[in-house]
Every structure is written in structure tokens, then in C-alpha cells.
Nucleic acid binder design. Sequence first.
DNA 1: GTGGTCTAGACCACG
DNA 2: GTGGTCTAGACCACC
Lengths: 134, 134, 134, 134
Amino acid sequence: MPFEFVITTGSPDPIYKQVMDQIKLGIAQGTLEVGGQLPPVRKLSKDLRVNVNTIAKAYNELAKEGIIVSTPGRGAFVAEPKQIYSEVERKHRLNQAIDKLIRETITLNFSKEEIEEALSKRWEQAHKPQEKKL
Amino acid sequence: MPFEFVITTGSPDPIYKQVMDQIKLGIAQGTLEVGGQLPPVRKLSKDLRVNVNTIAKAYNELAKEGIIVSTPGRGAFVAEPKQIYSEVERKHRLNQAIDKLIRETITLNFSKEEIEEALSKRWEQAHKPQEKKL
Amino acid sequence: MPFEFVITTGSPDPIYKQVMDQIKLGIAQGTLEVGGQLPPVRKLSKDLRVNVNTIAKAYNELAKEGIIVSTPGRGAFVAEPKQIYSEVERKHRLNQAIDKLIRETITLNFSKEEIEEALSKRWEQAHKPQEKKL
Amino acid sequence: MPFEFVITTGSPDPIYKQVMDQIKLGIAQGTLEVGGQLPPVRKLSKDLRVNVNTIAKAYNELAKEGIIVSTPGRGAFVAEPKQIYSEVERKHRLNQAIDKLIRETITLNFSKEEIEEALSKRWEQAHKPQEKKL
DNA sequence: GTGGTCTAGACCACG
DNA sequence: GTGGTCTAGACCACC
């Protein structure tokens, strides 16, 4: 099987988004190579025990973000990385995500240094190349 | 009136959450003192031009999280800060939030340094005592 | 009724895209004002005799393109115009659309001048402000 | 071999259409002469590394549009150019295509002049006799 | 009332 | 076989 991940149902963020994020992560880690084919929607749908349309939606969104290119009849493939968002939009999105982090953790009473340290550690781990499974 | 803030229409997250966040922030910044009274739901509802139920929900959730105590007829007050999560749970939640940040921004292709810098900036901005009482 | 348009079923491009394009046009023409509310999905769904999800998809896409902002419980509204795409992406999209035009009309044997003249005429017509119906 | 072209994987439009377009273009450019023979489906299929059925479909559609004539056993040939649409139909189709261009690009906020310039450039590029035989 | 998500199942275009 | 679209109907969160 190409690559693995799990879906947490009943999570705050929707299934299709979880799928998207996992695929993005897979690409960043090199588990999914540029130009490589993604698992067919029907297969992934079965593996994750999720409706086909939900997977299709995830692929669709990823395609619109320019991260994958998917053509009917051929399959979906990891696209060449390119920047589709304007500089301000890109920074806007980063800030949005960061603000969310701050909001979510503000009541946990961590110091800025603690958060930075944790970020650093998790960052390395997320970007550490995995052994290729594809 | 104790403190002010605005609701930004056209925000991705729901109004009641914005209210919650602003109150949490107020507490973190000291604008809202421990033991101090929160504005009555009806008043806040009017000031923010938001449905009463929405404010009520926000207070309700804050009470559930132990951040405020609200007794019918008397009003809502900022609670004594107490740690409701165990040490491991606290760290776990931080890591969860950080991982989400990483997954969501991974395709924006920011360097770790850029993210740290943005985090630092947004952090200061969120925690700096507000003269303009956002 | 807020504003009107028709859906051509059995057309090469899908319904949700037709809806998107018509709304974009409405905004450009001023029929739909910035900050103004779009017809509720269920209503539009009824008016156009199209499934609710199809309309929801259109709204969803428009929201992702930053053209409208839609929040559950409140409705969908025309967003402040802003540029979310990078300069290269913006030009890329224009060129894609133009190439499609050329491809589609190449067998019709029009001269470049004829196309340019027609473009000019239709352009004026598309951007001519309509009387507001909203 | 009469003329060459490439199929770009990762394109929004289907392969068979790309083939059609390239052939139309070849005719418009004079690379393919009226009465001249098109490459046999099997050969083209091999050259482009594309399924035979896909090429067959392209030829089939072109034949339907009266652009080529293909007789089983003898091969396919570039047809005499003839105008199959009435004058009004021809203009109608042009306008349709132009309106679609306008609707699709309206939110990209290009001026009419920018679009005209881009059209001019892409037009030249499409119709300029190809030395590199795209 | 609002929009968002998910499921089920159908059909289509494409290779 | 591949992904894309549409429908029907359900449930949810939010206001």
C-alpha cells in the first residue's frame, strides 16, 4: 500500500481536510514523490472506510490549490511545486494559522519560549524524510 | 464598562468563539481581572450587535472550561486561574495544535525561521497590554 | 427576487461553474453589491431547480477564491475585492482562458481583428452597470 | 512523418482534445496540407505514448466536425475547408466563446487593454508558422 | 433560518 | 480502470 494514515472521525476538522493535510505532509516528507501517482479515490476510500465523494473532494481541493493534478481517466499525481498565492495571501494564511495556534493554547499558559521549543522539535520531526513506501 | 472588543464579520470562525477568544485574551492581558465581573450578556449583545443567545453560548462554554463562573441572577465573573489539565495532557494539546499549524502551512513553503518570526510577532501583539483596548 | 439568471443543463461546463460565473458577473456589474447578501442556497436551489448541494458547492468555491465570504448561520456575502493569486498565477489563468478561446474558435476562421472587435463589444456589454435588482 | 506535437500531461483538458487541437492548429498553420494524409492512429498512438482508442476518438471527432475525412483501410486526410455553420451561427459561437472568456476572467481584474494584449500575443504564437514544430 | 459536511448511489467522460 | 458531477436526503453548528 502506497502510504498510510488514519482518520479521526468526530474531530473538529472535517475528514476531507484531514485527508488533505496528510497528503500534504506525505509530499513534504517525500513519502509521495513529485510526479508520483496518488492512490485512486476508490481505493483510498475503502482503506480509510470513508465515502468516495469525501476523498474526491479532498483531491479536488488539492488540485485547486495546485498541489496535485488530477485528470479523469488517468489518476491523480503530485504536481511540481509552485506558488499560486500572492505574497500577501501567503502571509495572511500563515498568520491565520498562527493566530489559531495562539488562541487554542492561550489558556494552557505556556510561555513563548516553551511554544517555540515545541515548534522547533515538532518541525524537525514533520520534515524528517520517511522511508519511502510508495 | 470593563473592556471592549469587536467582532469581525467575514471571519472563518463563528461569532461565539470570537467572543470567547476575546475574553480569554482580556484575561491573559489583565484587562479583565480575576474576580472581576464580565459585562452582562444583554449589554454585550447590544454593544456587539449580536444575538443574545450567541453571547450566552460563549459565556456558557467559558464556564464549562472553568475560565469564568457564572451564577444566574448575579452575573459572570473571572475565575481563579487553575490548571484543569494534567501536565502530559497540557503538553499533548500543545503538540496537537503545533502539528496542525505545521500541516496546514507546510505547502506555503515557509522556512522554520519565518514561522518562528511570525509567531513571535503575533504573540507579542496578542499579549501586549492593549492601550487601544481592541 | 435578488437577481436572475438561467442555467443551461447539458452544457459543456457544469452547473456549479455556471452559477459561479453568473455570480461573478453580477458582482462585476454591480447587481450584487460588495457586502450585500447572496440569495440563500436553499432559495437559489429552488429558483434554479437545482440540487442544494450544487449551489452550496458553487458558494464554497467562490468563498475559497475569496470572492464571497460565507459563514454558517449568517449567510453568504460579497467580499471586499482582493487579489489572492500571485502575479504569475493570475497571468497564467488569463492565458489559459485565452488559449481556450483561440482553440475553440480556430476552426471558425475569424481574423484576429474580428475577434478583437467582438471582444471589445461584448466587454462593454458585460461591464455595463445594470439597474440594481438587489 | 508529417508533423509532430506533444501531449502535456497535467493539463486540464483531456488528451483526445489536445490531439484534436494540435491537428486543427497544424491545419491552420499549414503544417498539415489540405488533402495530405494524417499519421495512422497506431503510429500516432505509439509516438505520443497514448492509448489507441484515445487517438481514434480524436480522429472520429474531427471527422464529425468535417475537418478531416477518414475512410477505413485508406487512412485519414485533411478535408477541403468548408464552412459548415451559417454566418449567424458562426458569429454566435464566437460571441459565446468570448462571453465565457469574460466571465471566467472577470474577477482577475484585468483591464480590457491587458486582455487584448494577451490575446494578441497568444494569437501570434498560435498562428505563427512553427519552426520547432510544436 | 443560515451554510457545511457526509453518505449513498447514480451517471458521465476519459483512457 | 480513472476522476468529476449531480441528486437525494440526512445531520450538524451556528444565529
